[in-house]
Every structure is written in C-alpha cells, then in structure tokens.
C-alpha cells in the first residue's frame, strides 16, 4: 500500500493537521488537532451532519468510532521513524456516555509497538477529560 504525496510531506513536516486533511473521510467528519509540545489532542468539532439519535441529540456512535480510529492511525503514523501506513486489524470500542451535540476530543496512547503489529488505546471525552464518553483499543499491521 502506498502513501500519497501529501501524506509523506505532512509526515516529514510532523504536521498533524496536514496529515488529517490528506484523508477525505477525516475531512468529512470535520476532524482537527491541537499540539502541545510533544502531545496532541484530536478534535471533532460540533457538526450537525455527525448526529445519530435525534432525541438527545447525540453524535452517531459510528462517528465517534471513526474519529477514534482515525486518531489512533494518525498518532501511530506520527510515531514512526520512517513513513509507514498502518492497516487496521481490529477495533474494540466501549461507549461510556452519550456523545452530545458538542465538541469531542481524543488522545491516544501507543501501548505496544512490535515489528509488525501495534496496539493503541484511545480515550474520547467532551466536557471533562475525567468523564470519557468512549474508550477504544485498536491493533494495526504496519506495512
């Protein structure tokens, strides 16, 4: 599998936002990022098109999953010495609270990086980091 020219450039420059913007699906969700030194927090701004349950209203669970999966992939790509494209193997997602119609944030932790497989943990929250709306665990194969 090949990396696009934009992805390579973004990786070389260590530019999270450029890397996100190189992925059409991430643009569809409206995903962004904020870096604080070595740390990065991913952001999913409030967006009506991301809603599922119209009663609360709440963000579609699949969008929360997609946002977290995308976060894991971006942070994994950024952690590599040389540009590599991770392929997702599995994704396990626990929904802890309803994701309300407001900004959502996520951060990732690379639990284990082997030669071929990486394990990433993702946490997503809204109002307070101490009240996560979802946690996830993903495995990736590194090509």
């Amino acid at each position: 599998m090949s990396l696009s020219q934009e992805m390579r450039k973004a990786l070389q420059a260590g530019d999270y936002q450029k890397l996100i913007d190189a992925v059409p699906y991430a643009r569809t969700l409206g995903m962004g990022s904020e870096t604080f030194g070595d740390e990065v927090v991913f952001r999913l701004p409030r967006n009506e098109d991301n809603l599922g349950n119209p009663i609360l209203p709440a963000i579609h669970g699949g969008v929360i999953g997609g946002f977290m999966e995308m976060s894991a992939m971006i942070s994994l790509m950024m952690s590599q010495e040389t540009p590599r494209l991770p392929r997702i193997v599995d994704f396990s997602l626990d929904y802890l609270r309803a994701g309300l119609d407001r900004d959502t944030f996520s951060e990732c932790h690379l639990t284990r990086q082997g030669n071929r497989v990486a394990n990433v943990i993702v946490t997503a929250w809204q109002q307070s980091r101490r009240k996560p709306i979802a946690t996830a665990r993903a495995h990736f194969i590194m090509d």
């Binding site: 992925v23 059409p24 699906y25 991430a26 969700l29 579609h60 669970g61 699949g62 969008v63 999953g65 997609g66 946002f67 999966e69 995308m70 997702i88 994704f91 997602l93």
Partner: peptide
C-alpha cells in the same frame, strides 16, 4: 476508511 465501515455496522 475503516471508520465508515464501523458506522455502517453500528
């Protein structure tokens, strides 16, 4: 993207 497949399956 896997996220869109996750949305479909959810």
């Amino acid at each position: 993207h896997g996220g869109a497949i996750t949305t479909l399956m959810d």
